[in-house]
């Protein structure tokens, strides 16, 4: 049973349909990527899961139960548009936000101490938020989001505004959270982090879910049957051997070797390719090339555009 299940969600705004019959299944204890171009309806779906707005049709099940106000304390949400009270002190504010999520002051204080130490930001406790840089504020916001140990975490563009070091720190924490049993919904436009972190994805476009599945499986689905071979030897002989149904996309020297990118004809596999080349050159490595999530994203969204 999926941990979070959105069934046939429809949400209309005054002049447009934000979500048109969208269904999403998020398996327990996984990182789930919610993808889509700007204005696709991701934020609307996230707001519905957070009960900020209600769906016009459809229902959300969390752990098999219909979503209700008491679930709020089980969810941690880091919105894309996030801010803090500028004039309030960091510690005081973190305490307040944690208490709004239903934590007792005592528990919140204890846990905040732990996290502030872990992120090495104890000296900020009595500073006003306006004295912190944007990245620093994001750290505080991240801590507040996960402080009440929610079983479902929703991160909307969590890495924006972070330098690579802090982005990595955050990535590690997100992976930690999964290891500790949390389920994570992760919305971003940064496809390389999707490949790195996500187990499953759903891609939404124009209010409709147009693609979902496990990340490696999705990439394979869009495979163009490409292979990359590193070899040394005579490039011409290699080209001659592949003449015909194989299509050489590129062949360039990298260091001492040549790197060859080949599009294989349908229904052929890498074994057949190797058979053709094995007598022509020294093969140093060989791998199937799957499209990046970036390519998949662009491909699917563009296709979807031409259909509709």
């Amino acid at each position: 049973m999926p941990f979070l299940q959105a069934n046939n969600i429809v949400k209309k705004f005054a002049d447009h349909l934000a979500l048109n019959n969208v269904s999403v299944e998020v398996p327990e204890n996984s990182i789930f990527g919610l993808l889509g171009p700007n204005g696709a309806g991701k934020t609307t779906l996230i707001r519905i899961i957070n009960q900020i707005t209600g769906p016009d049709e459809g229902e959300i099940l969390l752990n098999g139960k219909k979503l209700s106000p008491q679930h709020i304390e089980q969810i941690g949400y880091l919105p894309e548009e996030r801010g803090l009270y500028k004039k309030m002190k960091v510690g005081e504010q973190a305490l307040y936000l944690a208490q709004l999520k239903g934590m007792s002051r005592h528990d919140a204080l204890k846990k905040l101490k732990y996290w502030f130490e872990k992120f090495e930001i104890q000296p900020w406790w009595d500073k006003k938020v306006e004295e912190l840089s944007k990245g620093m504020q994001q750290k505080v916001q991240f801590i507040v989001t996960i402080l009440h140990s929610p079983s479902l975490l929703i991160f909307d563009e969590p890495f924006s505004g972070f330098d690579p070091i802090n982005a990595n720190l955050l990535k590690d924490e997100i992976l930690n959270l999964r290891a500790e049993g949390a389920t994570v919904i992760f919305s971003t436009h940064n496809m390389s982090s999707v490949e790195e972190l996500c187990d499953h994805i759903t891609l939404i476009n124009n209010g409709k879910s147009i693609l979902s599945g496990e990340v490696p499986e999705v990439r394979r689905r869009f495979s163009e049957n490409l292979a990359q071979i590193e070899f040394s030897g005579d490039s011409d002989k290699v080209s001659a051997a592949l003449e015909g149904s194989y299509q050489i996309i590129s062949n360039k020297p990298v260091g001492n070797y040549q790197t060859l990118l080949v599009k294989m004809p349908p229904e052929t596999d890498i074994n057949q390719l190797l058979r053709l080349l094995i007598d022509q050159c020294h093969i140093h490595s060989c791998q199937e090339v799957l499209p990046s999530m970036n390519d998949v994203f662009i491909n699917v969204v563009n296709q979807n555009k031409t259909i509709s």
């Binding site: 957070n50 709020i72 548009e81 801010g83 709004l100 999520k101």
Partner: peptide, 10 residues
């Protein structure tokens, strides 16, 4: 300040 979205989720 955009703090609103954090708060209305609570």
């Amino acid at each position: 300040n955009r703090i609103i979205e954090v708060i209305v989720s609570s």
